[in-house]
């Protein structure tokens, strides 16, 4: 093994940090589930209740939000590192694809979570996002599935909710394990073993 390959400055452990952020998100999100109510009338009130009447509620919600920002930033930096060091090349093409899927899933997970507080900012941000999707080729089909009754209506909020707390985290977790498995199969992250 090349000694220079062992330096922390080669990877900065960005992927590991991103996964740590993901686990923190899962833990804080699990606790937030105890108070969040996924209905248009109750969603914002449940957030207010969480922040005003629950011990540590405001801290936990801020933690979840800040960690999600960090998570995305770390994944982007990780992608940048992979590109700059050429780690996407043979024999790691498959892991590059898995990683890219993880990047997309994480962005989508963040997007679905953004609507859940149902305040003005999240509602209109989701609205504009959906309009952007509408302008693409298969956009109508996608928005028809994601927001069958319009942004902020009961069905669409429930769909964003289940995507955010169940489907996206599970897919990210599964793909992450596949990602880690592939690292071992490719004989580590470092080149020239």
């Amino acid at each position: 093994m090349l000694k220079g390959s062992l330096k922390i400055t080669y990877t900065f452990c960005l992927g590991g940090l991103a996964f740590t952020a993901f686990m923190l998100l899962a833990a804080s999100g699990l606790l937030l589930l105890f108070y969040y109510q996924p209905s248009p009338e109750e969603a914002f009130h449940s957030i207010l209740f969480l922040e005003s009447s629950v011990w540590g509620g405001r801290y936990l919600r801020s933690l979840h939000r800040l960690t999600s920002h960090c998570f995305l930033a770390l994944i982007f930096l990780h992608t940048l590192r992979v590109v700059l060091t050429g780690a996407y090349r043979k024999p790691r093409e498959l892991n590059w694809l898995i990683g890219f899927a993880l990047l997309c899933l994480s962005i989508f997970a963040a997007y679905t979570g953004y609507l859940l507080p149902m305040d003005q900012l999240s509602l209109w941000a989701t609205q504009t996002g959906m309009e952007l999707v509408n302008s693409t080729f298969f956009g109508r089909v996608v928005t028809g599935i994601l927001v069958p009754d319009g942004v902020g209506q009961p069905l669409s909020l429930l769909r964003f909710y289940i995507l955010h707390i169940m489907l996206m985290p599970l897919s990210v977790l599964l793909l992450s394990f596949l990602h880690f498995y592939r690292i071992r199969k490719d004989k580590g992250v470092l080149p020239y073993l």
Binding site: L31, F34, G56
Partner: peptide, 9 residues
Amino acid sequence: LLGKFLSPN
């Protein structure tokens, strides 16, 4: 701490 979090006023 968890118990405290789970008992709102």
